[in-house]
Computed example of a mutant assay.
Amino acid sequence: MTDVLTQVLADLAAEGDRLDALVSGLDADGWRTPTPAPGWDVATQVAHLLWTDGVALKAATDKEAWDAVVLDAIADPEGFVDAQALALATDPDLLAHWRSARSNLHAALAAHPSGEKMPWFGPPMSATSMATARLMETWAHSLDVHAGLGAPVEDTDRIRHIAHLGARTRNFAFSVHGLDAPAEEFRIDLVSPSGDVWGWGPDDAAQTLTGSAGDFCRLVTQRVNRADTDLVATGPDVDRWLDIAQAFAGQPGEGRPPR
């Protein structure tokens, strides 16, 4: 296991633990608390993480089981993922099952052969990429749960992995909207929760993006409206990117309305 994978898995576990601690004391009514995602309560958010962690485990360890998931998804491409989350949200042992899925996926990714990729709904992924994607989604859905329950959430430098994914998926965001990606690279400088500056791209790039890493990560996971961020785009292509940015696989989401 590489040092990078070790760090991402540790940060993924920490994000999962934070959400676990938030929901572990909820009563039945608490689990049914609505969240900012329309139609999704706290249980649905955790159920989605349970389902996706389970599917990621299949992708890493069981090709036949993974192929079966793909066939089901093809049969209902628009509603399949939501249907799985809504169905699992009624599981009386939801939290215990999510804990088990998290643990099993952690072990599978830690043991995955270096350099070998696993299938996914987008391009095939390395173990590090899969762990990063799971971190991104765990963090994003945790934000929804915190918001639903009215619990404050403090950003940590664990979001650096998410910011890196957001920067790397620039071209994907354009392509999923049927647009040609810009030919030139951008310079991205983001202020981390601890106050450091994280940077991507050439120093002399003509088009730039600056702002806080927390707002950038919320934007690329579509947890905030662009109008409610401190992000500053210099250049028309960067400006366009911020309107369509997404770091997750699948079709573009509706995003969030402005506050």
Score class of each variant (00 low, 15 high):
residue 221 T to Q: 07
residue 43 A to C: 01
residue 205 A to N: 11
residue 33 T to I: 12
residue 115 G to I: 04
residue 255 G to M: 07
residue 178 G to N: 00
residue 58 K to C: 05
residue 42 V to R: 10
residue 147 A to W: 00
residue 28 A to G: 12
residue 114 S to R: 10
residue 253 G to N: 05
residue 60 A to S: 09
residue 214 G to L: 03
residue 181 A to Q: 02
residue 98 W to M: 06
residue 82 D to I: 05
residue 52 T to Y: 00
residue 129 S to P: 00
residue 219 L to K: 04
residue 174 F to H: 02
residue 20 D to Q: 12
residue 112 H to R: 06
residue 209 L to R: 10
residue 197 V to R: 14
residue 72 D to T: 13
residue 173 A to M: 05
residue 215 D to L: 09
residue 41 D to M: 02
residue 2 T to P: 14
residue 98 W to H: 06
residue 54 G to R: 09
residue 149 L to D: 07
residue 33 T to A: 12
residue 176 V to M: 04
residue 159 I to C: 06
residue 142 S to W: 05
residue 255 G to S: 07
residue 217 C to F: 07
residue 24 S to C: 09
residue 183 A to M: 05
residue 68 A to T: 11
residue 206 A to N: 12
residue 204 D to T: 10
residue 55 V to T: 14
residue 56 A to L: 04
residue 96 A to E: 02
residue 159 I to L: 12
residue 117 K to Y: 02
residue 158 R to F: 11
residue 240 R to T: 06
residue 59 A to G: 08
residue 161 H to Q: 08
residue 43 A to I: 03
residue 11 D to C: 10
residue 199 G to R: 14
residue 241 W to P: 11
residue 245 A to Q: 04
residue 154 E to T: 15
residue 85 A to H: 01
residue 170 R to I: 01
residue 235 G to H: 10
residue 218 R to Q: 15
residue 214 G to W: 05
residue 103 S to H: 10
residue 120 W to S: 03
residue 196 D to Q: 14
residue 7 Q to S: 15
residue 129 S to V: 10
residue 61 T to W: 11
residue 200 W to Y: 09
residue 91 D to I: 09
residue 78 E to R: 14
residue 196 D to G: 14
residue 223 R to M: 12
residue 37 A to Q: 09
residue 246 Q to H: 13
residue 258 P to G: 00
residue 258 P to S: 09
residue 56 A to I: 01
residue 212 S to T: 15
residue 252 P to S: 03
residue 112 H to W: 03
residue 251 Q to A: 15
residue 199 G to S: 15
residue 123 P to A: 13
residue 136 M to N: 08
residue 111 A to M: 03
residue 259 R to C: 10
residue 229 T to Q: 08
residue 230 D to H: 08
residue 199 G to F: 13
residue 209 L to E: 08
residue 77 P to C: 07
residue 60 A to I: 06
residue 128 T to E: 08
residue 145 V to L: 12
residue 23 V to A: 08
residue 105 L to R: 02
residue 21 A to Q: 15
residue 109 L to F: 07
residue 110 A to Q: 01
residue 60 A to H: 06
residue 250 G to K: 08
residue 187 R to M: 10
residue 24 S to R: 11
residue 189 D to Y: 03
residue 86 L to G: 09
residue 40 W to R: 01
residue 48 H to F: 07
